[in-house]
Nucleic acid binder design. Structure first.
Length: 263
DNA sequence: ATGGCATCTAACAGATGA
C-alpha cells in the first residue's frame, strides 16, 4: 500500500498537476493540504474520474485538507473535535485535520499552522495547536495500533532538514519551541518519522520557497512528514520524496512524500 | 535589513504563506 502527502497550495490551481501525478503514481491514498476552497467548489469530478473517492474538509481562501482514496474510507472524521469534543472546537474553525480508516490502518492528515513570525499571535496559535494535537493523538493511539499521521508540519525537526541551519533559532519552522512542540506532540508518543528510517542524508527536502529560485539551488526544508505508530513502523517498506512535480510549470512550493507499507 | 513569489478575495491591494 502506498500513501502520499502533498501540500498543493490550492487544489484548483493545481488540479492538472494532481491528476498528472496520480496517473503516473496511482497511490492508494493521497493526503492533500492547503486546498483553499469551500467544499461545494472542490473539483471532485476530475479526481473521481481517476478512480478516487474524495473526502474533504475545506474553507474559503485558506487551509483545507482532503483525503483521496482508491478504496472507500471508513470513519472519516473532521477536526480535533471529532476526537476531543467541543472543548477543542474553536481550533477547528481553521480546517486542518481530517482522518479516516482503511481496514486496520487509521490515517490522520494534518496541516499544521505556519506561525508567521516567532512571538506573533499566529506563532502562539501554532504552539497551542500542536499542544492540542498531542491530546488528539494520545487519544487515538491506543485505539489504533496501525496509526499513520502525515501532512505539512511546518517544522523542520533537525538541522539536517534545512539547507542552511544558520540562524534557525530565530526562523519560523525551526525555533526551539516549535521543535520541542513537535517532539512532545508526536515523537514522545512513540510515533516514528519514517523518512529517516530509510534516509539519513542531509539535503532531502519537501518544500522550496518560490522566491530566490530556491528549488534550482535545492535551498529547501523538509517539513512534510509521515509519522508511524511503532507497530506500523515495522510494516514500512520505504519512504521517498518525489521532486518531479516541483519542477513542473506553475508548481506548488511543496512536493509529494510517499510511504510504502506492507499492508 | 529588506524583499524576493504565489494564491486568494464582496480583489484591482492587502493578507497569508514559510
Amino acid at each position: 500500500m502506498k500513501i502520499a502527502t502533498w501540500n498543493v497550495n490550492s487544489v484548483r490551481s493545481r488540479l492538472d498537476h494532481i491528476c498528472q501525478w496520480l496517473e503516473a503514481n496511482p497511490v492508494d491514498l493521497l493526503c492533500l493540504q492547503e486546498t483553499k476552497v469551500v467544499d461545494p467548489d472542490f473539483p471532485r469530478a476530475a479526481i473521481a474520474a481517476l478512480g478516487y473517492q474524495v473526502y474533504i474538509f475545506g474553507q474559503k481562501s485558506y487551509n483545507g485538507v482532503a483525503l483521496l482514496s482508491r478504496a472507500p474510507l471508513a470513519d472519516v472524521a473532521m477536526g480535533f473535535a471529532a476526537v476531543l469534543g467541543e472543548e477543542s472546537a474553536a481550533l477547528d474553525e481553521q480546517k486542518r485535520v481530517i482522518s479516516g480508516r482503511l481496514g486496520q490502518l487509521c490515517v490522520v492528515n494534518l496541516y499544521v499552522p505556519n506561525g508567521s513570525e516567532i512571538g506573533s499571535e499566529k506563532y502562539d496559535y501554532k504552539l497551542r495547536w500542536l499542544a492540542t494535537l498531542r491530546d488528539y493523538l494520545k487519544t487515538l493511539l491506543p485505539q489504533h495500533p496501525y496509526l499513520l499521521v502525515c501532512g505539512d508540519f511546518n517544522v523542520a525537526p533537525e538541522d539536517r532538514d534545512i539547507h542552511n541551519p544558520k540562524g534557525r533559532e530565530t526562523h519560523i519552522m525551526s525555533s526551539d519551541a516549535e521543535r520541542a512542540a513537535l517532539r512532545q506532540s508526536i515523537l514522545d508518543l512513540g510515533l516514528v518519522d519514517i523518512f529517516r528510517q530509510f534516509n539519513s542524508e542531509s539535503d532531502q527536502f519537501s518544500w522550496w520557497d518560490y522566491r530566490t529560485a530556491a528549488f534550482s539551488r535545492n535551498s529547501g526544508w523538509r517539513i512534510d512528514h509521515h509519522y508511524l505508530s511503532p507497530a506500523l513502523s515495522l510494516k514500512a517498506q520505504n519512504c521517498t520524496i518525489d521532486k518531479t512535480p516541483r519542477a513542473w510549470e506553475k508548481p506548488s512550493d511543496h512536493t509529494p512524500v510517499i510511504v510504502e507499507l506492507d499492508l
